[in-house]
């Protein structure tokens, strides 16, 4: 399910079947690595939407959480945990974070959801065959990981 009207109205009807939420965590970085940062953002969005497509009947793709890469992590963690608490009241049983930012790995314990950290994909031509294959492969693996929680 996406955060769109048609999907959400279906969600409301079938709440008991949709028990997992995914929040993409996307860092903003306007400094040195701006291009790389944008490329990763683009790939993560594609990954998230493909993942949603595979598991749409059980997974809600929540709008992405954006934060400044060099910002205060403590603050971000507490806000994220607020998100999780809010989402879990629906109820959702599982909340997953999807990110390329390895800095979250250190904070994993403090997060009230399951962190799925992906080592960055080599940024290349987004529409190339190789990239599509890579994304597909990653989606299969993330899907398997999520299913292992079900």
């Amino acid at each position: 399910m996406r955060w769109h009207k048609t999907d959400v109205s279906q969600y409301v009807e079938a709440k008991e079947y949709i028990d997992s939420a995914v929040i993409p965590l996307i860092s903003l970085d306007f400094s040195l690595d701006i291009e790389k940062n944008a490329a990763q953002n683009e790939i993560l969005e594609i990954l998230a939407s493909q993942l949603e497509r595979e598991l749409t009947g059980r997974l809600m793709l929540v709008p992405s959480y954006y934060y400044i890469k060099t910002g205060n992590r403590e603050v971000e963690i507490s806000r994220l945990n607020n998100w999780v608490e809010h989402i879990k009241t629906q109820p959702f049983r599982h909340v997953f974070f999807l990110t390329f930012d390895s800095a979250w790995k250190k904070e994993e314990q403090a997060l009230q959801g399951s962190l799925i950290w992906l080592p960055g994909i080599q940024s290349g031509e987004i529409n190339s065959k190789e990239m599509q294959g890579m994304v597909r492969e990653q989606v299969v693996q993330i899907g398997e990981l999520i299913r292992s929680y079900w």
Binding site: Q10, A14, Y17, I18, R53, E54, L55, T56, G57, R58
Partner: peptide
């Protein structure tokens, strides 16, 4: 597309 809720 699964005819239940649309998973693949």
């Amino acid at each position: 597309i699964c005819t239940h809720l649309g998973c693949v």
